[in-house]
């Protein structure tokens, strides 16, 4: 079984984010990178599936800059067999990333039987790559998956929907599965795993190798800013019983017209 996993490298959640000077991205020089946490579920699910299907291989793909290869090395240390890195800047848009991944899959010379991703990356929160990629490689896709079972050429997927309900999908492989928290508990990369990872193949490709150029950009970033500071909360003195009706009316008016939450 050819199992593929797409991972993204994102800033550690504790990183202090600052926009870059020209506003086209964020400052990346002093960022500590980690594997996107949702992608850890994808890697774990791939490894579980490999363990249940002797002779399978897990190939991990990533598109991004090479300054730090934390995410791919972590995946290899967890137990993936090989990795492909498509070198590009960290501010590619979802379309370029999906197209690069498609190119990398073709370059791998293998036909994926199943492809796992995280449901979203915690940096830009676009939630687009799994679906774009599935469309490009002509596979069905199911996202926000919290339950996975596989039998023969079929997978049964549980998907979370609003209100805590679950949808159940039965899908023929190949399929793109975008994983959510709850599907499994990702393993640690063990220390022997880290030592072994050094010897595993890591292939480097350029954007040109996978057929992607600047013309593929669909979203141009131009003005990254920090969110405005939150104004202090409003206080209402409702201790005086005579004024309570008046104050309630005022609060309701503000919630409706200013905060626009009701």
């Amino acid at each position: 079984m050819n199992i593929f996993v797409c991972v993204k490298q994102v800033p550690d959640t504790e990183t202090k984010i600052t926009p870059s000077g020209d506003g086209t991205f964020i400052e990346t020089s002093s960022i500590k990178w980690i594997m996107n946490p949702y992608d850890e579920f994808a890697v774990e699910q791939a490894l579980l599936l490999k363990a249940a299907n002797a002779g399978s291989t897990v190939t991990v793909l990533r598109v991004g800059s090479t300054q730090d290869t934390e995410a791919l090395r972590t995946a290899l240390a967890m137990g993936a067999d090989e990795a492909i890195l498509v070198e590009g800047q960290d501010n590619l848009d979802s379309y370029m990333i999906a197209k690069s991944l498609k190119g990398a899959i073709e370059k791998s010379g293998k036909n994926p039987d199943i492809l796992f991703t995280g449901k979203q990356a915690i940096d830009d929160d676009c939630l687009q790559v799994p679906q774009l990629l599935a469309q490009m490689i002509d596979m069905p896709s199911v996202s926000v998956v919290v339950g996975f079972e596989s039998e023969g050429g079929k997978v049964t997927l549980k998907r979370e929907v609003e209100g805590g309900a679950l949808e159940v999908y039965e899908v023929n492989t190949p399929v793109v599965v975008a994983c959510n928290k709850g599907i499994n508990t990702p393993r640690y990369a063990s220390l022997p795993g880290i030592m072994k990872a050094k010897k595993k193949p890591l292939q480097n490709l350029s954007l040109a190798d996978v057929g992607v150029s600047g013309d593929d950009r669909r979203v141009k970033y131009s003005n990254f800013q920090l969110p405005p500071e939150k104004p202090p909360g409003k206080k209402f003195d409702a201790m005086d019983e005579g004024k309570q009706a008046e104050i309630v009316a005022e609060v309701v008016q503000l919630l409706r017209n200013e905060a626009k939450v009701i």
Binding site: E70, A77, Y188, A189, S190, L191, I194, A197, K198
Partner: peptide, 14 residues
């Protein structure tokens, strides 16, 4: 080394 950084990251995570 790269490997020692990974060992550190993993052990700190634990």
């Amino acid at each position: 080394s790269q490997e020692q950084k990974e060992i550190h990251t993993m052990a700190m995570k634990f």
